[in-house]
């Protein structure tokens, strides 16, 4: 990967999935959510209070249980 490669999806170890650009994200209940930022963080730990978006809650989960 070159220094200036720009992936649209970045998986953060132990944290969310970063999504660059405009997307429609469907949550577990089938509800669609539009991204509103240049980059959005999608919850991967399942504990966010603002799903489908990350709210940093993964940090309070024991490290070995993080995604």
């Amino acid at each position: 990967m070159s220094e200036t490669a720009t992936p649209d999806v970045v998986i953060c170890p132990g944290g969310p999935l970063l999504l660059r650009g405009e997307h429609l994200v469907q949550d577990e209940d089938g509800v669609d959510h539009e991204t509103t930022r240049p980059v959005s963080a999608v919850c991967r730990c399942g504990r966010s209070a603002t799903k489908p978006w990350c709210d940093g809650t993964h940090k309070v989960i024991p490290e070995k249980l993080r995604p």
Partner: peptide, 23 residues
């Protein structure tokens, strides 16, 4: 800020500081 900074912390650490330290 709950939502924005959950994105920004990842950007700041992984895509700003880490590449600066590498370069």
């Amino acid at each position: 800020h709950v939502e924005a900074d959950a994105v920004h912390e990842q950007l700041a650490v992984r895509l700003i500081c880490a590449p600066l330290v590498a370069a």
